[in-house]
Amino acid sequence: MRLQGKTALVTGGLRGIGRATADRFAEEGAKVFITDIDTPESAKALLDGQTHQYIQANVAEEAEWESVAEIISAAGVLNCLVNNAGVDCVGPVQGTSLADWRRIMSINVDGAFLAVKHCHDLLSKGGQDTKVESSVINVSSIMGKVGYTDTSGYNTSKGAIKLFTKATAIEFATKKTPIRVNSIHPGFVSTPLLNAGMERLEENGAGFKSDLMQMLGDMTPMGRVAEPAEIANAILFLASDESAYMTGSEVMVDGGWTAQ
């Protein structure tokens, strides 16, 4: 029960890495809030009996973050924030519309900024009420470390998350604000987001989706893509007291991809 008595918020928590993280946190004793854009009725079906408290919210809308903070404040403090919500943007730079570029930045980058901004006071209080600081985990990507073909928008957004993590980590540490901030950089993970990205590449003539997925596994030194639970376990470590001396760190969970 590594998160016993703690409260966590996971954005984009209905599917993929976010859902695996929410479930893992609950297993370790946390009270878990999740946000996503689905209706409460759809979310209830997807949660399939899990007791996570669901809040419908678009992470790119500041007014909705004000509402999220109010709901969590009514429940007490916040000890952990996982900024997981995200979208991709696949295609050559010359074929990327400004609307698509702005969409990925608004969700992947603005969403994390707004979450930290509006949850700051709750996280600070949570850090003061426990022996170890509160924890923010920003889900970046290997694409925030290295470039890749036809993913300039995604690369840029995840690189921004990496530096936003470091900037806020130093800001909070030097001001003695009891909040740690770290980023996690998954490799290719078997999620609905990756599947959708491969489908778009197929539509753009890059090859069959099944072949593209196989290629990603073959190009990874460990020879496969990850499962969401494998990323969730690393996020759990960053949320727990076991990572108490870590802030501003980049945790790679990529099967060796960036070590090549």
Rank of each mutant, 00 (worst) to 15 (best):
A74N: 11
K31G: 01
G29K: 00
I71N: 05
A69C: 09
V59L: 02
E70S: 07
T21D: 04
F33E: 06
E70V: 10
A57S: 13
R24G: 05
V59I: 15
V32S: 05
W65D: 06
I55P: 01
A60R: 11
G29R: 00
K31S: 06
I71A: 08
A57K: 06
A30S: 00
W65L: 05
E62S: 13
T39H: 03
T51D: 13
G49C: 08
S67L: 05
I71E: 09
N58G: 11
D38L: 12
Y54L: 04
D36W: 06
I34Y: 14
I71V: 15
E27W: 00
G29E: 00
A69D: 09
E27R: 01
I55N: 03
Q50H: 11
E62I: 13
S67H: 09
S67R: 11
A57M: 13
A60I: 11
D48T: 04
K31F: 11
A63Y: 10
A69T: 14
I37E: 06
H52C: 05
I71G: 03
D38W: 10
T51C: 02
A45C: 04
E70M: 04
T21V: 12
D38K: 07
Y54W: 08
D23C: 08
W65M: 04
L46W: 11
E28M: 02
K31R: 12
S42D: 13
A60K: 11
A75M: 06
T21Y: 08
E66V: 15
H52V: 08
L46M: 14
I37P: 02
F33A: 03
K31N: 12
E28H: 02
A26S: 15
F33V: 07
E64A: 09
I37T: 14
E62M: 10
A43W: 11
P40T: 12
F33W: 14
D36M: 03
D38G: 02
T35C: 08
Q56P: 03
S67Y: 09
E27K: 00
I72D: 09
A30Q: 00
D38N: 08
I71H: 10
D23L: 15
A45W: 03
A74K: 10
D36N: 12
N58M: 13
E61N: 14
R24P: 03
A26P: 04
E70F: 04
A69I: 13
A75F: 06
A69G: 09
E28R: 01
E61D: 15
G29L: 00
I34M: 10
F33R: 01
G49F: 13
G29T: 00
G49H: 09
I72H: 06
A30L: 00
V59K: 00
E64Q: 15
T21K: 04
G49I: 11
T35R: 02
I55Q: 05
L46N: 07
V59H: 01
T51R: 07
A57V: 12
E27N: 02
S73V: 06
H52S: 14
A45D: 07
D48L: 05
A26C: 09
K31H: 13
V68D: 05
K31D: 06
